[in-house]
Nucleic acid binder design. Structure first.
Lengths: 137, 137
DNA sequence: TCAATATATTAGAATGATTCTAAAGTGTTT
DNA sequence: AAACACTTTAGAATCATTCTAATATATTGA
């Protein structure tokens, strides 16, 4: 199964039609060894470089929102003017370097498991995330 | 020492001139039993209710940014279209209810201390924050 | 106290990320 | 291939936030 077929399946199984634009974005986001962080602007630049035809801004937003809703990417909670996304959708934490604006994943062993001591009746826990803000000394 | 004098001192010691607008905002933000969370819009509504004269939007932003820079309030890391602030500037964590958009402080005992296992040479840790996203069942 | 100076406030314009619109295009199903 | 449903598109609209530059207020020092 080549990548294109693979991504077609991935989209189809989520009820998303495999269009040219979506497949191209799949390639960029998921056809790599390591997960990564990006903003819409980052993605737009990559698309511009890799494509002969243009993808409109609205399509990029639409597609990213669709991928987010399907759990293919997730949004990172961070106070920034732009929204950051992560192709690593597993439960994990982040370092944010305020000096350089770098955003880096925690590795599994970088922090002990977060243990809530509280019961939350009537609530469902969607995520537990740690954000460590650092600066260069 | 009455509150007004108190807030004048507070502003002055931070190098901020005690103006009518800043004093009014101090009252609203700091003259209360419990700390609280707010957006600029929340604050604008409160000001509208409590004031005879109008404070311009720009002044609200300017003042909030000044207070943030002086450490009188802090910004909460949260993916939302609006920026949330907190008058509780101590190190603490949050629950965010995605159904209701409610933002609630952890109490000290709601979570075990976060222990980083990683050394960060050349970096200074500015904050370690946990965000627990929940939804109504 | 009163000018001179420095800082703050203001209304409205500008910016920039994101969403909306509605027309044209593409994918799917029969 | 026709009919239908979904997607893409350019550009307009929206909304939070910042900028501008004119006016007002606070501070300083004689």
């Amino acid at each position: 199964m080549n990548n294109n077929t693979h991504f077609e399946e991935k989209l189809r199984s989520a009820g998303l039609r495999p269009t040219r634009q979506r497949l191209k974005m799949c390639e960029i986001l998921f056809d790599r060894k390591k997960t990564f962080h990006f903003t819409i602007e980052d993605l737009r630049k990559i698309l511009k470089k890799k494509l002969d035809t243009k993808i409109s801004q609205a399509t990029i937003y639409n597609t990213i929102n669709a991928f987010k809703n399907k759990g293919y990417i997730k949004e990172i909670s961070l106070n920034s003017d732009k929204t950051y996304f992560d192709t690593n959708v597993t439960n994990h934490h982040h370092f944010y370097n305020e000096t350089t604006n770098e955003l880096v994943d925690f590795h599994d062993n970088d922090v002990e498991e977060i243990k809530l001591r509280k019961n939350l009746p009537g609530k469902k826990i969607k995520s537990i995330e740690v954000l460590v803000k650092v600066s260069n000394k």
